[in-house]
Every structure is written in structure tokens, then in C-alpha cells.
């Protein structure tokens, strides 16, 4: 059974303008990594923004556990149901790594006696050295910042992880580490991980590869996994 479903969704930046996405249908399941691939400008990031409810579709909708995410509280959806890893990390620069993660848990309403310790443990498990935990995030390397962003995204244990070019700015070694984390999230923790990427390597590591051009109009219901099996 799918966790997330896109139903006949279209999107244009302005009313009556050119549609970036048109009649898109797709389903996403728990425990899998999906790679949204395609040329620049094809609408990958737009689709991810829609999945994150950062913008609204012109037509159609997205359902999570059969509930229309746009009919509910999109803020609540973002802080509970999805964890977003942005291309530019989008960490709060004046906070350190731990504070960034704790804030996310606070927003999600996680009620734990020691959120700070939980954040530290999480960050360390994602490869952040202990002495980097209290440093302002801007002083951390790109890879470290990406790890912090990932820790922030999973800190409140959302069922869906959305990542926009998560390894775009990273070297190969770090890219592998990051992907290992995503695999762990999907395969061990049972999350639904949707990654937007240019990288063929990342796409090949995904359980399901979805070319955005095909998804857009041409790709039909339930055909994704079958049409584009990994390897």
C-alpha cells in the first residue's frame, strides 16, 4: 500500500501560465528510496516542493495515508510527516548543529526529557564529530552541514524524507556516506526516501528511478516501479 500518492496533479507558477507539471500521477511506498531524475528545468525541485507542501498544485493533489495534504495544516505536515533535506542545507546559521536539530524537534512537538542529548546522539551517529556539535553550522564543511540537515530532517522521525540534490556539493566519498545514511533510513528504518538528483550514481543506488519527463503526462498510474526497476 502506498504511503504517498500524487493524483492527476498539475502545476504552473502563474494562473494560466505554462504548466511545469501536468497530470502527474505517482505513488510512493515506505522502505524505498525513490530517485527523481531529469534534465534541469524539468520540474524536479518543483515536484519536491509540492511533495513538501511548500507550494500548492494548480490541479490535483497529493495524499499521504489517503489524506489530502493541502486540505490539512501544511505546517503540521511539514513538521511531522516529512523531513526535508534542502540542496543548500538551509540550516539556521546562527545556531550550532545541536540547536538546529533540537529546534526541529521542538517544532514537531517532540516531548522528550533530553532533546539535546538525542540530537547529539543523532548527529554523532550521522558522522558529526563531538567537537563540532557546538560550533555554528556555518563553520562546518559542506558534508557536515548536509549531515546536520539530514539529522534535522529525521530527528522527529517523519515517515517521508525528501532530499533535493543531497550530494550535489559533496565529494564522492561523502556522497557515498550520505547515500548510506539514506539507505539506512529507508531499508532499516522503513522511511520513504524521495531524492531529487542529477547524479546517475545516486539514481542507480535508489530502489526506484523516476525520470521526471516520463512522469510528467506520459507516465501512468502504478507503472513507475515496473517501468523503471533499479538495475
Amino acid at each position: 500500500m502506498s504511503l504517498m500518492k500524487i493524483e492527476d496533479m498539475s502545476f504552473a507558477y502563474s494562473a494560466g501560465g505554462r504548466k511545469i507539471l501536468e497530470h502527474v500521477n505517482a505513488e510512493f511506498e515506505e522502505g524505498k528510496i525513490y530517485a527523481l531524475v531529469g534534465r534541469s528545468g524539468a520540474g524536479k525541485t518543483t515536484l519536491l516542493s509540492l511533495l513538501a507542501a511548500l507550494t500548492h498544485p494548480t490541479e490535483g493533489s497529493i495524499y499521504v495515508n489517503d489524506e489530502d495534504i493541502f486540505k490539512g495544516d501544511t505546517y503540521k505536515y511539514r513538521c511531522k510527516d516529512v523531513g526535508i533535506v534542502f540542496q543548500n542545507y538551509n540550516l539556521l546559521p546562527k545556531m550550532n548543529a545541536v540547536e538546529n536539530v533540537v529546534l526541529s524537534m521542538d517544532i514537531a512537538g517532540i516531548d522528550l526529557p533530553d532533546k539535546k542529548q538525542r540530537a547529539k546522539d543523532l548527529l554523532i551517529s550521522l558522522g558529526i564529530a563531538e567537537y563540532d556539535l557546538d560550533r555554528p553550522v556555518l563553520q562546518l564543511s559542506g558534508g557536515q552541514q548536509q549531515r546536520v540537515a539530514m539529522a534535522r530532517a529525521i530527528s522527529y522521525e517523519p515517515p517521508i524524507i525528501l532530499a533535493d540534490e543531497p550530494t550535489g556539493n559533496l565529494d564522492d566519498s561523502t556522497e557515498k556516506d550520505i547515500m548510506a545514511i539514506f539507505e539506512d533510513m529507508a531499508h532499516r528504518a522503513g522511511k520513504c526516501v524521495i531524492i531529487v538528483t542529477h547524479s546517475k550514481q545516486i539514481a542507480n543506488m535508489a530502489d526506484v528511478k523516476i525520470p521526471i519527463d516520463e512522469l510528467n503526462v506520459h507516465i501512468k498510474d502504478n507503472s513507475l516501479a515496473e517501468s523503471h526497476p533499479v538495475n
Binding site: 513538501a52 511548500l54 495544516d73 505546517y75 503540521k76 505536515y77 511539514r78 513538521c79 511531522k80 526535508i84 534542502f86 538551509n90 540550516l91 539556521l92 529546534l103 526541529s104 517544532i107 514537531a108 534535522r152
Partner: peptide, 9 residues
């Protein structure tokens, strides 16, 4: 923007 994106009303 970041706060709103990570779900803060």
C-alpha cells in the same frame, strides 16, 4: 523561510 519550511507556523 527556513522556519516555515521545517514546519513552524
Amino acid at each position: 523561510g527556513v522556519l516555515a519550511a521545517i514546519g513552524m507556523d
